[in-house]
Design a protein around this nucleic acid. Structure first.
Lengths: 259, 259
DNA sequence: CGCCTACTTGAGCGGCATCAATGGGTGTGG
DNA sequence: CCACACCCATTGATGCCGCTCAAGTAGGCG
């Protein structure tokens, strides 16, 4: 509950319509008409909150629905044959999980709650039918998947080319941005994630994480007390994170397919 | 032309219908009815082949279409502010490129031809409309995007956790599989890619690539003469590649959302 | 209080990058 | 036909970043 704003919560205790959801600009409803949102709303199932450590689904589960985080947070992770874990993402309110299961209809990863977390469930078959009827919804679905592909590619780039420092800076700025989009402070927040998970996600050992936080803190760039983070010089971190980020040319070049 | 079979080629010199395309089980038409394929076919534009080094699109170009490789091969790559390149993928016949541009309607990466390459162009707006009418097409589109997300996550995992040897083994097996799916030899093929691009993709220096190929070759696992590869012991490579691959549990566990 | 997990800090090492030099293949122009 | 340039691939020497191992500290919860 920590993330949903109070007025919303009071108005609609059990029946929390998409139309009134403070996250509807982050989630699927974006840019849909009121009537369309109502249709979407009618297939959404809201369930009792997950407690910390509860799983929304397990790798290997049959795929039935896509899920939107309403409050709280999730991590998704895969498991190797040897039992090694690899965290594939952290998911904050307004973000979707489960898109990677559409292909095989089996969840390739597990999704675990990092704190008390409430979820909207979007049964996929119904969502598919609805998307065929509502062009804006189909487009939004494709957009979100495209966005995920792009994000993964940026992450890939980071893993391939960037130093540990730069990777952590990127992740911190990513959290900062995502909190800010929800109207929270961009410079003071509580990471819902343990150091070891952060490190795992970034492909770094937990010890390295400690040393990085210490280094950043020694530089005066941030204060970190456990998971409580205060960014003192976001610009420094942003510069570090942005160094070597993917170029976004201002004006399109010709796209006629020849060179 | 090297990949399309001759009878196809004779039948339809300019007009090469999806229905007769030898790749239609790899590309979008998969599992569509004949009538549906014909509709899809009607929006597909086939263009004159790209020569080696030609660009299909540039990063920053406005997004207009998704492209399917018909023969030849492409690489996609991003460019940093400093001019550094990062290869984000290699694309063989039957595979799609451009999905990462749907979100912003701007191509976030460039696509360059690695050899003489022919392409099918799928104008996205028309594809969207068609997908709304043909449920199977919408589903196939979502599936392919989901697949890409999953593939990127596997790659991420590899970059985060696997050694240089394991990464190269994975890539070799990936090429082997993709050639095999098209009916080509799984153990003897020509990489359409320079060592330096392979290395770039894997986050490794070209020098490291050389040493790796030498090591594999010394082990008797493969013969490599330039880009010409012969896998002698695919099982050894497969074991190396598969070590620590993502688990795919045999039987689904419960997916009721609680733990 | 004791246990467990998360986090921190130090010491040492190894994998891979970097720098540098050389060899081979291919296209170009004389 | 050869000379030259250019790119790609190979090989060796060296160094650094981040992992591993090990120990110690702090906080949460029975």
């Amino acid at each position: 509950m920590s993330d949903s704003d109070l007025s919303d919560f009071r108005i609609s205790s059990l029946r929390q319509a998409c139309a009134h959801c403070s996250l509807n600009q982050l989630c699927l409803p974006m840019s849909l008409s009121e009537a369309d949102i109502e249709q979407l709303d009618s297939i959404v199932e809201r369930r009792r909150p997950l407690q910390r450590g509860d799983h929304l689904y397990w790798g290997g589960d049959n795929f039935q629905a896509i899920y939107a985080v309403r409050s709280g947070s999730l991590k998704t992770y895969t498991t190797t044959e040897e039992g090694e874990e690899q965290v594939t993402g952290f998911h904050l309110p307004g973000e979707l999980v489960g898109l990677d299961a559409i292909n095989t209809w089996v969840h390739p990863c597990s999704a675990a709650s990092l704190e008390t977390t409430s979820i909207c469930e979007l049964p996929f078959e119904q969502l598919e039918h609805l998307a065929a009827d509502i062009p804006g919804l189909q487009r939004q679905l494709l957009r979100l998947m495209s966005k995920e592909i792009f994000a993964d590619q940026e992450m890939l780039f980071a893993m391939a080319r960037r130093s540990a420092e730069e990777r952590l800076a990127m992740l911190l700025m990513s959290f900062s941005d995502r909190f800010a989009r929800r109207g929270l402070s961009a410079t003071r927040f509580r990471l819902p994630v343990a150091r070891s998970d952060l490190g795992n996600y970034l492909g770094l050992a937990p010890e390295t994480m400690s040393r990085l936080f210490r280094r950043f803190s020694d530089q005066g760039w941030l204060k970190a007390e456990g998971r409580e983070i205060q960014l003192i010089e976001p610009d420094a971190l942003s510069e570090l994170a942005g160094r070597g980020m993917i170029e976004e040319p201002a004006e399109p070049r010709r796209g006629d397919g020849t060179d």
